[in-house]
Nucleic acid binder design. Sequence first.
DNA 1: CGCCCGATTTATCACTTGATATATCATCCA
DNA 2: TGGATGATATATCAAGTGATAAATCGGGCG
Lengths: 77, 77
Amino acid sequence: MDEQYSMARLVRELRELTGLTQEKFAARLGVTFPTINRWENGRAKPSPLALEKIESLLRSLGDKDEALHKVYFGKEA
Amino acid sequence: MDEQYSMARLVRELRELTGLTQEKFAARLGVTFPTINRWENGRAKPSPLALEKIESLLRSLGDKDEALHKVYFGKEA
DNA sequence: CGCCCGATTTATCACTTGATATATCATCCA
DNA sequence: TGGATGATATATCAAGTGATAAATCGGGCG
């Protein structure tokens, strides 16, 4: 349960939840598509500012994904 | 009126407007103090995500700083 | 089958950032 | 005077990022 791997899965699951391509998902978060791809493939992990955006997006998806949020961020939604 | 220089001034003016040290200002924006220092001294410029935070902070300061916003971001507050 | 086409994966390079350490500067005050 | 302290400036290095290009992977479809 390596941290990199968890983040990779979180990002991919989150993106698939939104039904967006890596390119559009990147735009949604204010980053570029290679960045999303690197996150999803565990070759990099989100910067602090990017993490904020991810949490915020997760939150915006509402309670039905609160479980997901807890799983990856631990400390409450 | 080099772009780097304008951003440097914007960041410093904005920080002084808030009355915060570079360290606290950094925390406010979700970045670290060396980053703020590099911005203010023109040795680096904000990443896209950081720029969002700057604009947002500027906006949160309200209308009395709209002029400042226009000066540095050009396209309306 | 073979060809397009959208999506994904990987790679490279210059630049930004976080973490950390050191140095400089100003101010206060014993 | 001179030392303590807070704020700022600068440097280094590893890691993340944006821009760009190339390769690969599916599906549809002629």
